[in-house]
Each structure stands twice: as C-alpha cells, then as structure tokens.
Amino acid sequence: MNPFSYHRPTETKDALSQIQKANAKFIGGGTNLIDLMKEYVEKPSELIDVNALNLRGVKTHADGSIDIGALVSNADCAYHADIQTHAPLLSAAILAGASPQLRNMATCGGNLLQRTRCYYFYDKATKCNKREPGSGCDAIEGFNRIHAVLGQSSSCIAVHPSDMCVALAALNAEIHVRSPRGERVISILEFHRLPESTPEQDTNLHPDELITMIRLPANPYATHFNYLKVRDRSSYAFALVSAAVAFDLEDGGTIKSARLAMGGVAHKPWRDLEAERMLTGKRPSKDLFATVAKHVFAKARGYKHNQFKVQLGERVLVRSMTEAIEKGVKR
C-alpha cells in the first residue's frame, strides 16, 4: 500500500482542519478503506483517524427520534435496546451484513461511505469509471452478475453494498454532517447518488465534511417490518437482492402507510415512493403485492449475467411484504 502519515485528533475542529490537507481521508473502522488501500484503489497520503472524537452513543429523545453517533459500531447499534425496540428493521438489516468481527469494527458513519464491491472497481487491470473517471466500464460487457438493474447509466452499473443503508432509507434517516462552513443535514434519500456520468462520486457529502450523527425520526414501523436478503450463501455475503419493508396498519388491517427500500439492485438504496402510495389505504393481498412489485421493477434493465435479478427482485419484494404483514407480534 502507498505510504501515508497518520493523525489522531481529539477535537472535531482539529479533524476538520486536518482534512483540508491534500489527499487526506478520514478513517473510522477502516474495514473497507484499508482493504481498498491494500488494492491501491484508495491512495490517501494523510489518514485522519476520527476514533478519538466524541461521536459515540445512542440517544433516544422524548419524541421517539433516535440519534446514533457516527462512531457507534454496527454491532453496538444493532444490539442496542432502543434500536431493537423502536427501529428493529435497522437491527435486522445490520445483522444481515458482514460478520460479527466486521460489525464490531465498522462504524455507522463509515457504513454510509462503503464503496461498491464491483469486481472491476477493485481490479486495477480493468476499466472502471468509478475508480478512474473516463476510462470506461468493463462490467457492462463483462461478468455482471452482481450488478445494477435500476438507475444505472452507461458509465457505471455498480451497486451499493450496504444492508444498513437500505433500512436507513426505509426509515427516512437524516445524516448530520459538519465542516468548517458549519453543520448541515442530508436526507438519506439525497445522501447517495445515482451514477449518471460521475460514478466516482458515491455520495453528496463534500470531501471536507465529517459525518457526526445519524438521526432516525420517530416511526410506527416496529411491528410489521421485514428485512429479506437473498445471496449466494446464507451468511457473510453481499446481497444479490434485499428488501426492507415496513407497514403501519389500521386496526382493521388496512395499510395506513408503507415503506419499501431495496438493496443490491442500484447504485444507492432504492426507495420507490410511488409504490408506497399504491399500498396506502389498501388491504394487504397477494395481488396487491404482485402489482406493486411489478411497478418497482417496471423500468428495470438487466445485462447478460444479472437478468435474473428483475424476477428475483419482484419475488423478494413480495415475500418481504408478506412476511412483514405476518409479523403481527410486537417484538
């Protein structure tokens, strides 16, 4: 890996000043960044270790919203009593990803910035617009089994790898960030980008901005929720397709509101607001779910090796909705 100098600030203001140096990067858990540095895909010359900053802790507010510090580990978040009680969908999604060792290391802030596991992004012998803008995309004509079917472009067909972010998208999380210019809040729906012609930009976070916190608004989705992940082996693998589903039901069973977000299908967690509106006010049924799933994938386009994801995606969504409804008992 390329040499770099290492800094461990204890104050956020120092971290924000050190990140201004040329080619500097923040490091949290390091589980993705160090791997990419070993492959020479990431080559920072300065690493700013944020682990000594005061960005830990999970705090539940009186209105039911929950703040998750950027440095809270994935494991601590998933097993936190308040998350399990008020946002069990997030727990389920986090625990569907990676391994216990990685979840102990990886931070929630860092998980938002995970990069794609597209083989061509990792392999410097190939063309990749995300790794080297303008070089081309070897995935489009290559082995593209794990790639996107929704929202992709002629520049990039990579998918976002996170499970956590799919649940955050379903729960309308807010990402709080800080820079020398002050603080701002980015909706999770605006945080990750579609590739368009600039796939090198995964997110709308500016290079000098530090994620400080994830806020989950209060939600009524602690009963009828489900995270279904389908992959090539039953654990410790990235999703081929995943579906985070949450319903708020009337006493009579009618759907008061619904949230749907999918992973493994696009460059960002894929929310379909129109599909959610199609569910609102209706009674859950096999036909309704099939119609909604058809709608979500109506504009999907597959490639030589991932065409199966369109039908798989519809089936995973229908099954996840069905299981969410069946989960009648409060956890």
Binding site: G30, I34, L47, D49, P100, N104, M105
Partner: peptide
C-alpha cells in the same frame, strides 16, 4: 474485549 479482524486495522489505530 471484542473479536476483530486484525488484518483490517492499523496497529497505530
């Protein structure tokens, strides 16, 4: 106290 992958962390951290 926590199990981790020692290959994915720098000793200095």
């Amino acid at each position: 106290g926590q199990r981790i992958n020692s290959c994915l962390t720098f000793a200095v951290m």
